[in-house]
Amino acid sequence: MNSAIATHESPGPILSAAALPGGFTGPSLSQEERSLIVRLRKGDEGAFDELVNKHHGALIRMALGHVADREAAEEVVQDTWMAVIQGLPRFEGRSSLRTWICGILIHKAKDRGVREKRHATFSDFESHDDDHDEAVDPSRFHQNGEWAGHWAFPPQPWDEQTPEKLLASRQAVAAMQQAIDSLPPTLKEVLILRDIEGIEAKEACELLQITETNLYVRLHRARERVRRAVEIYLEGAALTV
């Protein structure tokens, strides 16, 4: 694991809030994150609430991929927040803030998972879900003949309003959340880092110690499972109209 990103940044001079704007040399911080960190270092509780609200759900989901149950996941996330609080004065911006937080979480969750002796299970997941099977069900494509490899059962187009309608539907949201929660850890953490937390591909690869090609294989398989959950929901919804 990349130690600079994954856990605590290397010990260095503690930067005071006043020194912050010039103290960040890393290119990974957005302007929004820079101003948030300035507020955090000034002790702004509102800024801390913002930070927690923004990332807590994703951290819980990611932790659940590594530990036995929700209670253990909440403990891991609480430990992560405590480490963030303690590490903020030394955070130098060599990765984005969210990458740093997710790195701490992954480190702690994996550590807890190993202590729970669940690592063998994760290896099994990886062997089943790493890069060999196709993302889309092969039976949706012609197997033989002139159209071999082309759609036999193509997806039905969504209209422009479909995403908003999905977000407004409690059942659709539940279907997507269920699809995310059911993902094996290797797919779930990629999806959360990239699509929920919005971490750049390169930083996600460094965190997970995988290649970009591997990242996109996993990411696409995870997205496809969520897309398929939506497709099933929409097919069911059409039948009930």
Partner: peptide, 28 residues
Amino acid sequence: ACAGCEAYVSQIAAVRDLLGRLPGPAVE
């Protein structure tokens, strides 16, 4: 040239964009 693939890739893009907007587990 392919309506099926156009629909598929559009749906993957829509899912990608939706994921960041889904409500997550709340803080106790």
